[in-house]
Amino acid sequence: MKEQAKKYIIEAENLAHEYARRDENGDVTEIVRALDGVDVQIREGSFVAVLGANGSGKSTFAKHLNRLLFPTEGTLYIDGMDTADSENTLAIRQTAGMVFQNPDNQIIANIVEEDVGFGLENVGVPTDEILLRVEESLKETGMYSYRRHSPNHLSGGQKQRVAIAGVMAMRPKCIILDEATAMLDPVGRKSVLDTIKRLNQKEHITVVLITHYMEEVTQADYVYVMKQGTVACSGTPGEVFQNVGTLKECRLEAPQITQIVQELCRAGVSITNEIYSVERLAEELLRLKSGFKG
């Protein structure tokens, strides 16, 4: 199927979210506009990253995607369902599953496989089907060998993969990771990223990755950068990374490799902008150097 033919699974138009801050007496002290006219379109099966600093509105946006919040202005459709309509709550949450930041806050059962099956049990899926789906999800996230372990003794990255398995078992069309790697060490972060990348490529699950780590978005198909509740810029990772000034205003920083490529370009070295790995850059530079000789 051609990319163009795929429909939008997430469509936000002029989406806004306002809430009131109150003092201890309950009086409104301030109206905060956490989202301010956001337009986002995400195609089914794509891998989209939403980048933004702390307080940019990216987590508020994420919470709209499975109707933990709903628009105060504008519209948001998830797989054609209007999130303003409370009747759609369950269907939306089954379509868009969410993984949160803190691995310790979202695991509830004493055994890994019970935790993964919790959501299925809640919606009354027959036992045989639960067992089958739990096994499948744990295999997909590489946590099958831990199925009888207590989640307490897993590392942060492993806990997040269990949380992802719990979401996967519900067979959502879309999975949203709301800073799901922020509290992990580099090994844990890599294991989670590899897992979602695989789910995106093999199972064609739409992935929305919310993060402030720019090196995590290099593999995304498309990137939205948020700032003060608005989309500051968007494009492929290569396009977005070139906006050095905008990124700095957004309190973000490009990975070192990107910075090196840009510095070299500025110094007149003819090199393509779309290089994200050490190996690729070394290869490119060696080719350039041999060109100088010959």
């Binding site: 090196i260 850059l281 150097k289």
Partner: peptide, 25 residues
Amino acid sequence: PQATSLMHCLAAQGAGVKEDCLTVQ
């Protein structure tokens, strides 16, 4: 750091660069 890793990678393939760079600059 990626900046250091890049220099290691270049040197490993025969480039005559100083390897102990620490920063982008």
